[in-house]
Design a protein around this nucleic acid. Structure first.
Length: 803
RNA sequence: GGGCGAGUGGCGGAAUUGGCAGACGCGCAGGAUUCAGGUUCCUGUGUCCGAAAGGAUGUGAGGGUUCAAGUCCCUCCUCGCCCACCA
């Protein structure tokens, strides 16, 4: 084996050893300092694709690096095994989703192991395991008890052709069903929600302290969408007992309100519609209801058709003047109060609407001189606003709110874009919601000793897309736990984001049969020190997991002080192919195993690390797999015992010092996630060893620094050299005395242009540097005997002579 | 429409704080080894002028600050991503 590098043989040998020896198993009483590394658990879609390889390469590198640094590294793996693909496959082929899924899991597991990624497999979990389902259901019931889970009517995507509910991703961009092509409509269903909005403020505030990419934090902030403003009431003209409540972020502009707008679904619409307008209003409301989401949300189309006058007026409390009330499809019932005051002078949308309907426009903020735009949204003194005149926007807002509160008309409010989390799914292959409906006792949780509620196996999957649970008599009919009378089971299942909202906690204590997890185990490992995954989960999964962590801590299930699940987050870039996203449907997948069979796992891992910074998107065409393979063969030839290629260095002291500098540099690059430059540093050093000769210390250092990146080849070479396991060695330490350079290059510039380079002592003074620079023949020539105008001396790097 | 990024050779990319632009790799060209291909090794490789030494020029465009700008400031262009009628 030693003579020629045979990646497949080396990789087989070491992967078997890691698996059989349980090298990366870690116990909860491990005395070393804890470090928790987690890659987002995957949906088991079969063999790994390049995106998986990229993800697990980074994760595995950190596991091995931190282990060498002396940490007890928790590195678990699991499968997000509920989900729509298995159910669709069942409808197509008749194979039960469990069978289908359980065939896919070993495929993915094998390909993860084939790239040399190591985990504590004793902790493996799958969302569809009855033990996981049980605790998932227990947590649901605790949420229900605490009022964090509740039921209400909510619209779903309904396909009239298939007679079934569709997930958003099953609705095409043109608003039609992906299967039947029918236009998808909305239909109201009683559904379960989690009250994530209760945590909106905390979810927003706690983002600041997280070591996450700013981009992801910004996306979360926008998603929560906190906005401060005021709500106030406006009585209907002639009927002061009926009042319309509006939300605004600009109470300072209230004097400029020239009309008000309600959402078409607003409950006051029938009451406010005059007989004269009834026909028109009803036609409008009807049209909006049947419009697809896409049409309604489209900003296209003439504004004239997007609103209608109700015939009523409300009194603006600021001016005591009546303003007309309109309906418009762009006002949403779900945000604020579903009703707005319209100030066309200060809001472009209101301006456009006012133009289309011939409504007056009153400016309430003085636009800057020379302003030629329409609505003005910037700061400036208030005008046309009586007692607010002259105040800048912020002060005017505060004054207006104070006035509303003093007169009992309204108050300061905070609104969020964030909605409660709809967790009901009208699907089979998910975690059943553990409640029954009793005609006498209403919603009754299934007693804990009867959990888990599991879906039956004897079901038939029909291409209607309807969940078979709804027609399974044995599942559907049960008895009420309170009275023993006949009751029916909930047939909806939970959103799979529920499963992924606490799996990282279960990993701390996956064997627990008495609780979802033990508090002490969670306290030891959590929060996750390094979480790794795709940017596509920047909003939903990460928000839900944060909510779950806070809620579980508040319910006393998790440690009280555990407020956040993921201390540090890294999101890796996507892999593309010829500019397009790699995907099965495009048929542009590159199977990892093709590369494993030719160049091996180490070369593939190295190529992933080297090709680009880890956070960037990358095209497969850019991967220099050949170059990485070539580099590994070079290392092999240099490092095998009795190597014919590796000549002993003539100046071994210089080589060893270079090795110490390499330790310093590469260690820093590991900390900064600068793996692409770390590989470059290692390549540069290897070039040096080829040219200047090797020392045992230099080669050992090279292998140690490479070990987390290319674990197989380095393990094999280390064993050949020392007979021990490289992955149990300590991470090398640079000797600061030896990293110092004897000389460094001083750049001499004349007027900012490089004119000379001088080798100097790195510790030289400003004066010495200046003296050396001025003595340079090139500088002498440029000065022509005269004196320089100015000399900037920045030893030891640069001197700039201005002439 | 709003928000966030990013524009550097033929390509992926490098350049901690403003201080030698293009590290490292791919590709390409030439050479050595080889019957040949592959492998391996050596040399060259931003652009323009030059045999070379060397010089000029150069980080999307334009302007500015500075002894010095890929990096900081202003204006603009292009691309990507996210949220999108949120009052």
């Amino acid at each position: 084996m030693a003579e020629v590098y045979d990646p497949q043989a080396v990789e087989r040998k070491w992967q078997a050893r890691w698996r059989d020896a349980g090298t990366y198993n870690v116990d909860n009483d491990d005395p070393r300092p804890p470090f928790y590394v987690l890659s987002m658990y995957p949906y088991p879609s079969g063999r790994a694709h390049m995106g998986h390889v990229r993800n697990y390469t980074f994760g595995d590198l950190i596991v091995r690096h931190r282990t060498m640094q002396g940490y007890a590294v928790l590195s678990p793996f699991g499968f997000d095994s509920f989900g729509l693909p298995a159910e669709n496959a069942a409808i197509k082929t008749g194979v039960h989703p469990r069978i289908f899924t359980e065939e896919r899991i070993p495929e993915l597991k094998a390909s993860v192991q084939a790239i040399g990624a190591v985990y504590d497999w004793r902790r493996e979990l799958r969302s569809h395991d009855p033990s996981y389902i049980k605790w998932n259901q227990v947590i649901f019931q605790r949420f229900l008890e605490a009022g964090l889970a509740y039921r209400r009517n909510a619209p779903v995507n309904w396909c009239p052709g298939c007679q079934t509910v569709l997930a958003n991703e099953q609705v095409l961009a043109d608003g039609t069903c992906e299967r039947s092509g029918d236009v998808v409509t909305k239909r109201d269903l009683e559904q379960w929600f989690f009250k994530i909005t209760e945590y909106a403020d905390e979810l927003l505030a706690d983002l600041d302290a997280l070591e996450w990419p700013e981009r992801v934090k910004t996306m979360q902030r926008n998603w929560i969408g906190r906005s401060e403003g005021a709500e106030f009431d406006m009585p209907v003209e002639g009927r002061p007992e009926v009042r319309v409540r509006v939300f605004t972020t600009r109470p300072d502009t209230s004097f400029g309100m020239t009309y008000a707008v309600l959402a078409p679904e607003h409950p006051l619409v029938p009451a406010l519609t005059t007989d004269e307008q009834r026909g028109e209003v009803e036609a409008f409301v009807q049209r909006v209801r049947t419009e697809s989401e896409i049409e309604r949300m489209s900003t296209e189309g003439p504004l004239e058709k997007r609103g209608v006058f109700t015939g009523s007026h409300v009194i603006n409390p600021f001016t005591n003047q009546p303003v007309p009330v309109y309906l418009a499809d762009y006002v949403l019932m779900g945000y604020g109060t579903g009703a707005i005051m319209a100030v066309p002078g200060q809001d472009q949308r209101d301006w456009d609407f006012a133009q289309a309907y011939g409504l007056p426009i009153i400016r309430t903020v003085e636009p800057p001189e020379g302003w030629e735009g329409e609505a003005y949204v910037g700061d400036g003194p208030a005008i046309n606003s009586e007692w607010l005149d002259g105040l800048p926007v912020a002060e005017a807002k505060a004054t207006a709110i104070e006035w509303l509160e003093q007169h009992g008309i309204g108050e300061r409010t905070v609104n969020y874009r964030l909605r409660d989390w709809l967790v009901s799914r009208q699907r089979f292959w998910g975690c059943p919601i553990p409640v029954v409906y009793c005609p006498d006792h209403g919603i009754v949780p299934v007693p804990q000793d009867e959990l888990p509620v599991l879906a039956p196996d004897d079901v038939e999957f029909l291409p209607t897309g309807e969940s078979p649970l709804r027609f399974h008599e044995g599942f559907l009919h049960t008895t009420c736990p309170v009275c023993g009378g006949p009751a029916t089971r909930e047939t909806d299942t939970m959103d799979t984001f529920v499963d992924s909202s606490w799996y990282f906690l279960r990993f701390c204590d996956p064997w627990n049969e008495d609780a979802p997890f033990d508090q002490a185990a969670v306290a030891k490992w959590m929060p996750v020190d390094q979480y790794i995954g795709g940017i596509e989960h920047a909003i939903l999964h990460l928000m839900y997991a944060r909510f779950y962590t806070k809620a579980l801590a508040d319910l006393g299930m998790a440690p009280k002080d555990l407020r956040e699940p993921f201390k540090r987050l890294f999101t890796q870039g996507m892999i593309r192919m010829g500019g397009a996203k790699m995907s099965k449907s495009r048929g542009n997948l590159v199977a990892p195993e093709e590369v494993l069979g030719t160049h091996g796992a180490d070369a593939l891992r190295l190529a992933h690390l080297f090709v680009t910074p880890p956070g960037d998107d990358v095209d497969w065409e850019a991967f220099g797999i050949e170059g990485c393979s070539r580099f590994l063969r070079r290392v092999w030839r240099l490092a095998i015992p009795d190597s014919e290629t590796a000549a002993p260095a003539a100046d071994s002291v210089a080589i060893d010092r270079a090795a110490h500098r390499l330790i310093e540099r590469v260690s820093d690059e590991y900390e900064r996630w600068s793996y692409n430059t770390a590989v470059a540093s290692l390549m540069e050093f290897t070039n040096l060893l080829s040219k200047e000769g090797t020392t045992p210390f230099a080669v050992d250092t090279l292998l140690l620094l490479m070990a987390p990146m290319t674990p197989h080849i380095t393990a094999e070479l280390w064993e050949l050299r020392h007979g021990t396991d490289i992955h149990t060695q300590a991470w090398p330490q640079a000797d600061p005395e030896l990293t110092k350079l004897d000389t460094t290059t001083l750049v001499v510039q004349i007027n900012g242009k490089v004119r000379d380079r001088i080798e100097v002592d790195p510790g030289l003074s400003e004066e010495e540097a200046e003296r050396l620079a001025l003595a340079s023949p090139r500088v002498q020539e440029a000065l022509g005997g005269g004196a320089p105008e100015k000399v900037i001396s920045r030893p030891p790097r640069l001197v700039n002579v201005v002439v």
